[in-house]
């Protein structure tokens, strides 16, 4: 594995019976990169992501994530990555502090370390006043920011974000992206899916999946040049309409 790469996938494929959900995708993601993983609903993004985070075994091909093989070292992958999705983020009936403690424990952090990280995290997010409130009572945007911070608790090499900003208000959505920039600036690789095409522009590189294949992969600037359009939305419309 190239030292600078934290994800390397070669002809990664997943079949369900006769149906090829992910069709021989190949790509690399570098350390500290913000990598946008786009595609229409049903294009195979979630299936591909599940293979990369070690919870679904590929049918064929090869991939290494954070230096570990998806076939043989899936458990090591899980320890070295962070994951957050819109659907499952935190426990609504635990408080902010309890959630942090719980996930810190899951990731095997020491009590001391959890306590320290918890204090820093709560202060950085400005959650002092609600630290003892149930997460279920917080606005969606706060939950998502907290969830992202929790996914970084164990200093993972890569964090996978599955539509992290859906339905979030525009100001909070931007604060969320500033957190992403910060994490990437500190060397964490960010692998993110989104349906907001302006967010695709925030990524260093973007891949677009169509019917199980990666049909385009480049910087937003080059993709726009390649398709001769003004924005990523038009790139997406041109490609995904097939």
């Amino acid at each position: 594995m190239n030292k600078k790469n934290v994800i390397e996938a070669q002809n990664l494929t997943k079949m369900f019976g006769d149906f090829t959900a992910v069709n021989a995708i190949s790509f690399d993601v570098k350390k500290g990169e913000i990598f946008g993983f786009l595609g229409a609903n049903g294009a195979g993004k979630t299936t591909a992501m599940k293979m990369l985070i070690g919870i679904s075994k590929p049918t064929s091909g090869a991939a290494k994530v954070a230096g570990f093989d998806v076939f043989t070292n899936a458990e090591d992958i899980k320890k070295n990555i962070g994951y957050m999705s819109q659907k499952f983020a935190l426990y609504d009936d635990l408080t902010v502090k309890e959630n942090i403690t719980f996930f810190g424990g899951i990731y095997g952090l020491s009590r001391k370390s959890i306590k320290e990280k918890s204090a820093v995290l709560i202060e950085e997010l400005g959650l002092e006043k609600v630290a003892s409130k149930l997460v279920g009572s917080l606005p969606l945007g706060w939950k998502q920011k907290l969830s992202f911070s929790v996914s970084l608790l164990h200093d993972p090499k890569i964090v996978f974000l599955d539509e992290p900003t859906g339905g979030v208000d525009p100001i909070t959505r931007r604060q969320f992206w500033e957190m992403i920039y910060k994490a990437a600036n500190q060397g964490t690789t960010v692998f993110v899916t989104t349906h907001y095409m302006d967010e695709a522009e925030y990524c260093d590189r973007v891949s677009i999946m169509v019917n199980g294949k990666i049909e385009a992969l480049d910087t937003p600037k080059k993709l726009k040049q390649q398709f001769n359009v003004a924005n990523m939305n038009d790139v997406f419309l041109k490609l995904a309409r097939g």
């Binding site: 229409a40 997406f236 995904a240």
Partner: peptide, 13 residues
């Protein structure tokens, strides 16, 4: 009520 939430840009259009 939010007919296009979570829907990709092509289907939204």
């Amino acid at each position: 009520d939010e007919p296009t939430t979570g829907v990709d840009p092509v289907s939204r259009k």
